[in-house]
């Protein structure tokens, strides 16, 4: 079967799978960013309970495998009375997992904002929250943008695992097509190319664009 015939026949399913993958990616990104911010800030908090909660989250999700986390959230949580739809379990697991890595980026970026910035904000009588929101975080964002680019690509790759709990994403469709046609090269070849295009031609340029937009405002030397 030529590649054109293949695409003609399975293009619809690949497209639908890609849309699921993109949706998983976007939602998981939101979860990852929110949890990274909360736990990254939490780890620096003066409040012990908040600090420990953040540390425990980061340790658990960084220290164990994404697949195990996915199975826990989808198969084990229901035994404790929390049943999530597979679609939600999918992006939640991926987001929580990547968020725990993002937390370290947030913490590191906040700590690498020069001390003088804290002091200048302090000298203007700004409250701790204002100092963080108005002065430190905007600068920390610029510092952590490049590593976040890499992390989001990791996140995209991580979403492929949601196929294992039958979310009908790109990987799931590729596996289905392969299973029924045994056209492994075409099936997994298209998946490969599509993942690559998403990472290389959507995420990377978008992050570059963000970096440039920020750098225009803030060219610290």
């Amino acid at each position: 079967m030529s590649i054109w015939d293949f695409l003609l026949q399975f293009g619809g399913r690949l497209t639908s799978g890609t849309l699921y993958t993109v949706a998983q990616f976007l939602l998981a990104s939101v979860v990852a960013i929110v949890f990274a911010l909360l736990s990254g800030l939490g780890k620096l908090s003066r409040n012990r309970a908040i600090r420990w909660a953040s540390i425990i989250y980061i340790e658990i999700f960084r220290g164990t495998s994404l697949l195990v986390q996915l199975y826990w959230i989808y198969f084990v949580l229901p035994l404790f009375g929390l049943t999530l739809p597979k679609f939600v379990a999918g992006f939640l697991s991926v987001g929580l997992n990547i968020g725990s890595y993002g937390a370290e980026l947030v913490r590191g970026a906040i700590q690498s904002v020069p001390r003088g910035q804290w002091e200048a904000a302090y000298a203007l009588s700004m409250s701790p929250a204002k100092r963080m929101i108005r002065v430190i975080l905007p600068q920390a964002f610029v510092i952590m943008l490049p590593p976040w680019g890499n992390l989001l690509i990791e996140l995209l790759k991580g979403t492929a695992l949601v196929a294992l709990i039958s979310v009908t994403d790109l990987m799931f469709e590729a596996k289905q097509i392969n299973g029924s046609t045994f056209l492994s090269v075409q099936a997994f070849g298209s998946a490969l190319v599509i993942y690559y295009i998403l990472a290389r031609f959507l995420i990377t340029p978008f992050m570059r664009w963000c970096e440039r937009a920020m750098a225009r405002k803030l060219s610290r030397t």
Partner: peptide
């Protein structure tokens, strides 16, 4: 009531 200026200015770069 107190204002301070620093050796390295510490203006907010953004």
């Amino acid at each position: 009531m107190i204002g301070m200026c620093f050796q390295h200015f510490n203006l907010f770069p953004h």
